[in-house]
């Protein structure tokens, strides 16, 4: 049953992605991207990743979409018609895709408990974290305790990106109201 939900949602995802490629209005593309994110969150739930689904629903379908709409309000949603031939990008994409699909033949079957990814550190997290950290949610205990350095780095990256956005879109405009003066 879970597999069936998974397959149906993934098929929706493919349909949304194809619509994003085919549509020309940027407004529609951005709204479809919000839908795409929401479906992805659904897939994450089907794959047991509740924390990730939570984040994806709030970030992808919420904040990303709002920011993209804000950008569209600034740069306009007109998109120039494609002038270049589509043959070259299509060839590159098809060749890369075929190589990647060929690679899946060697991958462990989906959901296989014997897959290498489940053999390394994960058993320790699952068996020992309730006793060692005492937190029922293993994702939290791995995120905050076992991989605390990693999370500190991620927080610093978020902070840096925010500061960089402030540097780029800072509040210089406030002082001189002239809309054309983007120079000093």
């Amino acid at each position: 049953m879970t597999h069936l939900i998974d397959i149906v949602l993934l098929t929706f995802l493919v349909a949304t992605a194809i619509a994003i490629v085919r549509l020309n209005s940027l407004f529609a593309v951005v709204m479809l991207f919000g839908i795409y994110s929401l479906i992805t969150a659904g897939v994450f739930i089907a794959l047991d990743a509740v924390d990730v689904a939570f984040t994806e629903a709030a970030v992808g379908a919420g904040i990303s979409t709002v920011l993209m709409l804000g950008t569209l309000a600034l740069v306009g949603h007109r998109q120039a018609p494609q002038q270049h031939s589509r043959a070259l990008p299509l060839t590159v994409v098809v060749i890369t895709g075929v190589v990647l699909l060929w690679g899946t033949a060697d991958m462990p079957r989906f959901g296989d408990p014997e897959a290498p990814v489940h053999q390394h550190v994960a058993p320790r997290y699952i068996q020992d974290s309730p006793a060692e950290v005492g937190v029922p949610n293993m994702v939290t205990s791995v995120l905050a305790s076992y991989r605390g350095f990693d999370t500190l780095g991620e927080t610093a990256v978020v902070f840096t990106a925010g500061v960089a956005v402030l540097v780029l879109l800072g509040r210089r405009r406030r002082q001189h109201r002239d809309p054309g003066s983007s120079g000093d």
Partner: peptide, 24 residues
């Protein structure tokens, strides 16, 4: 540390949103 992460993420997301709003 979760509190630290929450504070940083909330204020950075708002900062970014305000930066775009102000340009608009």
């Amino acid at each position: 540390i979760e509190l630290g992460v929450g504070i940083t993420v909330a204020s950075i997301m708002l900062t970014i949103f305000y930066a775009f709003m102000e340009r608009n």
